Amino acid sequence: LVRYRTISKIPQITLNFVDLKGDPFLASPTSDREIIAPKIKERTHNVTEKVTQVLSLGADVLPEYKLQAPRIHRWTILHYSPFKAVWDWLILLLVIYTAVFTPYSAAFLLKETEEGPPATECGYACQPLAVVDLIVDIMFIVDILINFRTTYVNANEEVVSHPGRIAVHYFKGWFLIDMVAAIPFDLLIFGSGSEELIGLLKTARLLRLVRVARKLDRYSEYGAAVLFLLMCTFALIAHWLACIWYAIGNMEQPHMDSRIGWLHNLGDQIGKPYNSSGLGGPSIKDKYVTALYFTFSSLTSVGFGNVSPNTNSEKIFSICVMLIGSLMYASIFGNVSAIIQRLYSGTARYHTQMLRVREFIRFHQIPNPLRQRLEEYFQHAWSYTNGIDMNAVLKGFPECLQADICLHLNRSLLQHCKPFRGATKGCLRALAMKFKTTHAPPGDTLVHAGDLLTALYFISRGSIEILRGDVVVAILGKNDIFGEPLNLYARPGKSNGDVRALTYCDLHKIHR
């Protein structure tokens, strides 16, 4: 019993810090008490220290592992850092350059016999395009090294910054494609005289377009951006097909006994025919423009016929181009109408809503002055909100995010209106959640004399007048207030005048 009563005193000691020596009952000389009392004092002292730490809000209350900052290894790049964003855009520009100039170089340097010394005699450094290609190869190699040090988000939505895990993730992902696209074939085969082989191998750079397509997928929600990307894709495919079309004609031209190829026909049409040795002929500019003209006309199913396939190889390629053109029509131009419709969806919704308003007016036989006010209010409210119901949009977000959005939407009023000066951010967040926005066209009466005042109004834009009878008592403008002081009276009061809008007004109100 003594032991039980001794232990039962522990909660009292913990909360009230009572010393055991003052209790005459606990001072009985028993061996059990002498053993338990020192333990009680020690526990009391420890609990006292913990309570003191909690009340003082000291940093040592938290466990040590929670006080440590997340460790980022040296030379690790955050995937959302500004440097990584700028670097990704730079790589994107280099990939676009590669997609345009690599097929052009591979096709127009394929057994090209233009006048001038061969590239091997001039030297590697004197070729501007080769120098640019070398810079692109170096940048792609540097990009691989950067990807080995860039964080990523795993399946659990955690940012991984450990170098080993980053390397394994990159090896399992895009490393092989990036490595093949970054191989400097110019340096590996330079001086061997195989410019045709170098041009063909350099087309491996186009593998990076797969990554670019995935990154550009984030802009699919913007109709104008999608339309622009589709047109660029169409032009890029036409450019690639033009390079292939020229390569076919250029390879067949020296081996044909009869002059029936499209390059021969082009030379005869523009007065620059090929001679018996295969030299001469149109310039590279004429060849490229004509090839691009043929691919565009074939892809769009126009086909004027002034550039036509004559050999079997050219006919087979033309059939493939027609098939590609039909697929592009289905996948690209078939979506253009939907994209344009999405661009004008706001206008369509406006006309639909206006039609419903006019049908309501016609069905209920609203008189002319009231009908005009109804239409003007709808037009003004639509121009202010673009038909978007803010309350319906915010309803799907958590309250903390709703408060931040409301604070942002009402920031101008909260910053410049005098009653809100000096208020804490928590108070402003709470008030912003209570605001209701209303609009009024010129001549609209917001409050009639004798109406119950259940709200306090803040003028965000425009001006109003307060009338008693036919006498203008006051004219209020931006950041002015009218209405009933909230919670100042037990019952809502009545208006002693009319409140009429002089201009288009936007008002925020808080109800009782």
Rank of each mutant, 00 (worst) to 15 (best):
H408Y: 08
Q68W: 04
H351C: 03
F294R: 01
I260W: 01
S283M: 01
T150H: 01
I237M: 13
W89R: 01
V289H: 03
S277V: 05
M390E: 03
L279I: 07
G422S: 10
A204L: 11
M433Y: 03
S331A: 11
T438V: 12
Y329R: 13
S326Q: 07
D268N: 14
D133M: 01
E114T: 15
A106W: 05
W382T: 07
P82V: 15
K215C: 04
L207K: 01
R74L: 05
H439E: 05
I177N: 01
V136Y: 02
K66G: 07
N275M: 04
S220T: 04
V136P: 01
N386Q: 14
V357W: 01
S297D: 11
V447Y: 12
G426W: 01
D137K: 11
I248Q: 01
Y104P: 01
Y104F: 14
F296M: 13
E196H: 15
G280V: 01
P419D: 05
I166R: 01
P369T: 04
A423I: 10
G249Q: 03
A449Q: 10
N306K: 01
I146A: 04
A130W: 11
T352I: 07
D444W: 08
G303S: 01
E195I: 15
L94E: 14
V289Q: 01
A238I: 04
F108H: 01
W262Y: 01
T385N: 15
P309M: 01
F296W: 07
F234K: 04
M433T: 09
I183M: 04
Y377D: 12
I366P: 01
Y104A: 01
D88F: 01
A106F: 04
F363A: 11
S81T: 07
I244Y: 01
S220P: 05
E196Y: 11
T347Y: 07
I72E: 15
R373Y: 04
G116P: 13
P398C: 03
T438F: 12
L355V: 10
G325Q: 03
I332W: 04
A130Q: 05
G396K: 03
Y377S: 13
D268S: 04
F304G: 01
I284M: 11
T311D: 01
V142T: 05
F228H: 01
L355C: 13
T98H: 01
K272I: 01
L110T: 15
N275S: 09
V302W: 01
A125F: 15
V100S: 01
P309A: 03
F360N: 01
F296E: 01
A155G: 14
C243Q: 01
F190W: 13
I77A: 01
H239F: 01
V86E: 01
L414C: 01
P398V: 02
A440Q: 08
A440P: 07
L230I: 10
V168N: 09
C427K: 01
S301G: 14
D257F: 04
T102V: 07
L263N: 01
L428A: 12
K395V: 10
N335M: 03
S105E: 04
S220E: 05
P117Q: 11
L323H: 01
P367A: 08
F101E: 09
G422F: 15
R362P: 02
L413C: 07
T290N: 01
W87C: 01
P118Q: 15
T295W: 01
R218M: 09
I144W: 01
T300S: 03
Y274D: 03
V226C: 12
E195T: 15
Y222R: 04
M179Y: 03
E375F: 09
I183E: 01
L413K: 01
E115K: 13
W245M: 01
L187A: 09
W174E: 01
P309S: 01
D404G: 02
R358V: 01
M256I: 15
T233K: 04
I146L: 07
I189V: 13
A224Q: 09
F333Q: 05
Q402K: 04
N156H: 10
L188R: 14
T233G: 14
A204C: 06
S105W: 11
R214G: 08
H364D: 03
T290I: 01
A403S: 06
I284F: 01
F333C: 04
S283A: 01
N306F: 01
S412W: 09
H448R: 10
N312I: 03
E376N: 13
R208A: 06
M322K: 02
R208M: 07
P419I: 15
A155V: 11
E64N: 13
H79R: 01
G267L: 03
S276R: 04
E376Y: 09
L201E: 01
I138G: 02
W245D: 01
V302R: 03
M328W: 03
K425P: 12
T76H: 03
L370M: 04
Q365P: 01
G116F: 14
I361G: 03
S192L: 05
A224W: 12
F333K: 03
G280L: 01
K84A: 03
I248G: 01
L230E: 04
R371S: 10
I388A: 04
H448N: 14
F175V: 01
C406V: 05
W240S: 01
I72Q: 14
A130V: 05
T98D: 03
T437Q: 09
G123W: 15
D137H: 03
R71W: 05
M390G: 05
I237Y: 01
S383H: 01
A242K: 01
I361P: 01
R259N: 14
P163W: 12
Q353K: 04
L188M: 12
C126L: 02
W262D: 04
K215A: 04
G193V: 03
I405M: 01
E252S: 01
N368W: 06
A155Y: 11
R421S: 08
H264M: 01
L266A: 01
R211A: 01
T352A: 09
D137E: 15
I91R: 01
C427A: 09
A432L: 06
L374N: 01
S331G: 08
M139D: 01
A247P: 01
T347K: 03
T113E: 10
N306Y: 01
T311G: 01
T300L: 14
I248R: 01
T76Y: 07
I324P: 01
S192Y: 07
T424S: 11
C400P: 09
I260Y: 07
G116V: 08
N310A: 01
N335Y: 13
T203A: 11
L110R: 15
L323F: 03
V321T: 02
W240I: 03
C232T: 05
K84T: 01
S331V: 12
P273W: 01
G426S: 05
W89M: 03
H448G: 09
E121G: 15
G261A: 01
G443D: 01
Q253W: 06
M328T: 05
W240T: 01
E252W: 01
R371P: 01
T233A: 14
S161N: 07
S326F: 04
F397P: 01
A182Q: 07
E112V: 07
Q253T: 11
E114F: 11
E114S: 07
K66E: 07
I388V: 07
R421D: 07
A204P: 05
C417R: 06
R259Y: 08
S313F: 04
L236W: 01
R208G: 04
D88W: 01
F397E: 01
C406W: 03
L197A: 04
F190T: 13
V357A: 03
E157H: 04
Q269F: 01
T150D: 14
F101V: 14
Y288G: 01
Y384N: 06
S301A: 13
G271N: 03
L216N: 04
H79Y: 01
W382G: 02
C406Q: 10
Y288T: 01
R218Q: 09
L176E: 01
Y219S: 05
L431T: 02
G116E: 05
G303L: 01
L145D: 01
L145I: 01
G303N: 01
W174Y: 05
P441G: 09
S313I: 14
G334R: 07
F363R: 13
M328Q: 01
A99K: 01
T120M: 11
N335H: 12
S194Q: 14
V131I: 14
L110I: 03
F378G: 04
V302T: 14
R421M: 10
A403G: 10
Y124N: 04
F185A: 04
M328H: 01
L134S: 06
L207F: 09
L188Q: 06
I91G: 01
S161G: 11
K172S: 04
E157N: 11
